[in-house]
Structure formats: structure tokens, C-alpha cells
Design a protein around this nucleic acid. Structure first.
Lengths: 196, 196
DNA sequence: GTCTATAGGCAGATAGAC
DNA sequence: GTCTATCTGCCTATAGAC
């Protein structure tokens, strides 16, 4: 994701999202404050409230932008990568990119804090997972139909399993500060779907 | 885990852990306060500080007790369950039990908040994962040697993948409030290790 | 062991000037 | 759009009585 924090052509609202996004992905929604964001941008807390009335609205905006960007990345994969297995590898690569910035998936982090979130944020988090599941389901079904992938049961259940495995791999890899742990687990997960 | 909260034979220190544990597993370490625990136990915040000087010490005590109990449960499996596959299923059952109380794995939750935790808690969280990995590694190696399990690469890497997959499955299942999502993902993960 | 009382700080949020 | 100033409430933590 682009660093817009020092780009004068980017509006304050976007730069707030950039800083807040990083803070949520590294510290959690309950682990950062308006003061943290304001200090980093060199403005005051009151300035933030002009752009986002409350933390809940800021949170919703974060998930909305993250979901759009992720959907765009998935569209990019559809357009540029051929073959179900290669697409899954590219999908895992998106996660690896996030992790390389010492970040957790935004919605994976928020999933942990789910019970403490305002309702609109909860729905948005699940919506993100739903979109990922739908994309994965399509790719998996494609791979099954052209016999480049093999798995039992529904594509949807397999998609859910892949999503959960990658989120978990990020979670643990980040605790150790070892992105290689993610790479290994992701490779294994995808390998389990390869034709035998 | 036993409910000691209303048992007069159980000391206050233990009951504090019971309440705090549930709060951390459901809301996160940054999502609960001494006031929450005190109110639920009917004592004052000052009373808590007598038993645990600060939130950091309380957190360390939580992980320590959780790790001991988990290790005991693993020992129980070793003693009562035969066969690598059945042991893995029992292991996943431990997670399912936690999830059935709408809780996340204590250390999975703390892993998300890792960057905000005091150093001793960070080490303890990773220690919990290390113990789990060691146990899983043993079970997987056993299954491979007696040909009841099949997987490529090192047992340690396979163990890490299983651990991460189960933690991720809990994380996502909890966001949806659907334990069945965990069951499905866990069953798939174990099935991928079965002999073909 | 548990209480009252209180400290000092930070949280999210608002009013109103510029 | 961003500021200063301020509010209210909650946070972790401590001192000292009982």
C-alpha cells in the first residue's frame, strides 16, 4: 500500500486512514488512540474529529478502504495470473506483503477484538471475510473443474479452511517476528490442495 | 475449565484469574480493566492489586496457569488416547471446548495484541506456542513412523502449520459466532494429514 | 485481605475562535 | 480545516485505615 503520509497532494482524511490503519494492524483497535494518530500527523485530536466524528466511524472507514483495496488486488490476480494454483499462491502473497510490514491482516486483528467492536464494524469485518471466501471459492472450483486442484467436500468449506489457515499463520508468525513461519505454513496449506 | 467463581473454598487469587481469563479470551488484554474484574467479583480495584500488583503481573499469571492446564490436558491425551490421528482429533477438541464458551484461545488472543504487551507476557505467549508445537511434533512424528499419518517435510513444520490453522479457525469462527466453522476447518486440516 | 480515598494520566469527545 | 481549551469519564496505581 502506498505511503501517502508525506505526500502533500494527498488529503488529510486519507493520511489519517494511513496512520490509523497501520496502528490498528500492529496494535489493535483497542490499542491505539486519537492522540497517537494526531501526534504522528502533527495535528490535534480535534482536527481528527472533523474528518471522522468518532473512533467507530474511523474504524468503519478503515475497513471499507481495506476491503476495496483487497478486492482490487484480487481483481488484479484474476487479470494477470492464470491457473488456480498460481492464483492461490498470489493470494498468499498478498498476506505475505502485509506481514512484511510487521502488520496483521486488518480484519484478522479486528476479528480478535470482535466482541468489543461497535456493530457496524463487526458486520464490515465479516463482509471482508465473505468477499475473500467468495473469491477463494471461485478459484478453488476452477481448479477442481480443470483438475489442477484436488480436495474433498464443497469448495466453500475448502475456501473457509484456506482463509482461516492463512489468518492463523499470520497471527502466529507475527508473534515470533518470523515471516518465514507464514511462508512455510502457506506453502503447506496450498500443497495440500495440489493434485496427488 | 472449572467455574470457581462462586465456590467459597477457592481463594480470591484464583477467582480473579477465572474472571480475568474469560475477559481476556473474549475481549482481549487491552479490552478489559481491573474495574471489570472487581465489579464481577464484588470486591474493589484496590483488592485486586493486593493479589496482583499490576495488570502485567496478572497477565503473566494468566498465561502461566493456562499453559499448565493445557499441558495437563495434553498429558491426559497421551495417557488416554491411542493413535496419532485420534490424538490430533482430541487436540482439536480442546480448541473446540474453548470456542464453545465463545472464547478465543488465550494465547491466540494475546498473539494479536503481542506488540502492546509487556515483554514477560510476550515471552510467555511464545512459550505456550512452543509447548504446543513440541507436543504436536511428537504426535505427528509418531503417526508418520507407524504410517497412520502422511505429510511432506519436517514434523516440526507440519506441527506449526496445524497450530496456526487451528488458531486461525478459532479466530474466524468466533467472528461469525459459528463454532461449526471451526469444526469444519479442523476436520479438513486433520484429514490432510491422513494416509492416502 | 479488603476497604476508602485519592492521585495523575489518558481516553474519546465537544464548543467555539480563527 | 485546524486550532485552543475544556469536559467528563475511565484507566492503573498507591497510601493508609480497618
Amino acid at each position: 500500500m502506498a505511503v501517502t503520509q508525506d505526500d502533500p497532494t494527498v488529503g488529510t482524511a486519507e493520511r489519517i486512514l494511513d496512520v490509523a490503519e497501520r496502528l490498528v494492524q500492529t496494535r489493535g483497535f483497542n490499542g491505539f488512540s486519537y492522540a497517537d494518530v494526531a501526534a504522528e500527523l502533527g495535528i490535534t485530536k480535534a482536527g481528527l474529529h472533523y474528518h471522522y466524528p468518532g473512533k467507530a466511524e474511523l474504524g468503519e472507514a478503515l475497513i471499507a478502504r481495506y476491503s476495496v483495496r483487497f478486492a482490487e488486488a484480487l481483481g488484479q490476480i484474476d487479470d494477470t495470473v492464470r491457473g488456480a494454483h498460481a492464483r492461490l499462491a498470489a493470494y498468499a502473497g498478498l498476506y505475505a506483503q502485509v506481514l512484511s510490514g510487521d502488520r496483521m491482516c486488518l480484519c484478522g486483528m479486528l476479528a480478535a477484538e470482535h466482541q468489543t467492536l461497535p456493530q457496524p464494524m463487526r458486520s464490515a469485518v465479516n463482509g471482508f471475510f465473505d468477499e475473500n471466501e467468495a473469491w477463494l471459492t471461485r478459484v478453488l472450483a476452477q481448479g477442481k473443474s480443470d483438475s489442477t486442484l484436488s480436495y474433498d467436500g464443497s469448495s466453500r468449506d475448502a475456501a473457509r479452511t484456506v482463509l482461516a489457515a492463512l489468518e492463523g499463520a499470520m497471527l502466529v508468525a507475527r508473534a515470533y517476528g518470523e515471516p518465514a513461519r507464514f511462508q512455510s505454513a502457506a506453502a503447506r496449506t496450498l500443497a495440500s490442495l495440489a493434485v496427488s
